[in-house]
Amino acid sequence: MTFAVQKDYGAYVVSSLFDAADEAIVALSDGRVVFVDVDMSFDAHPGAGILCAVAHPTGVGIVTGGDDGRVVWTTKDSQPIELLNIKGAWFDSVAVNAEAMLLAAASGKKVYIYDLAKKGESKIFEHPNSVSGLVFDPKGRKLYCASYNGAYVWFSRIHPQKPQLLKWAGSHTGIAISPDGKFVVTSMQENALHGWRLSDSKDMRMGGYPTKIKSIDFFAKGKLLATSGANGAVVWPFLKANGPMGEEASEINADESSMVTVVAGAPEDTVLAAGLDDGRVWVAELQSTGIEYIQREKGSPITALAVSGDAARILFGNEDGGVWLFESTH
């Protein structure tokens, strides 16, 4: 397999993504942000580590949260811009919404809401327990915060307020919302997902995983939800009004010798990529059942994976800092 880019950056790859301009960007644990196509690197968090990253809501560049208490926006054309700087904070989750131009960043029990339109103004949502996952609804009206014993729901722009709690016992570590805004799904400390149908807060238990789920991604126009945490990529159908209720998940390309550590689907297509704990990466076109290993060579576990908007490019990285950019010739 030949790659458009193949490079060793020597630090754990925390996140990989494509921005709206199809710029391939990775965030590294040593505080660097790298624009992979042009091999341009910025020290976004000098002397510190990046813990989380998302594409900026303008569609240009990347927003990173660090263990230096800073949230930083980095584009290819300017030096890193600091959005938040809270002494002692440890930002391990960040979410944005393009419609409302809002950014949320979590450190411990506090979630900071930063209004990108009215720069400098930030609100704090306090929780009884730490928040480890954040997601806005599609319009940016509400913010969902994964925490202990459920997900807290806040109106993004109202302050002060008392949040609603979507209750479910246990520690919820990650969170995703279906693109139609009808379902919220969390990954848990236990080897399970939990979901809520938001119209009536009805619970959906989605279990049966052999390991912890670290990666969840809605794809194919929100009709499918892919997760890591098994030998194959687990795909839950969200084709009907009830979501996955009463439906069974499918496990794609289960290989007993390895575990899927990270998944990424194409936003519009039934194309799904999976990174494995043995360093390999495969891509599947789910309607044709064609599966192709784009990385056959084994190595350290894949930690970051992204599929571009047109599904033509796949960017991934591993624990040791290896980064690969695959471009489809089809």
């Binding site: 440890w90 411990g108 327990n129 730490s130 400390q189």
Partner: peptide, 13 residues
Amino acid sequence: GDLIRILQGLMRR
């Protein structure tokens, strides 16, 4: 729970 998250972050460095 806080320790799990902090250790995961530290181990990346």
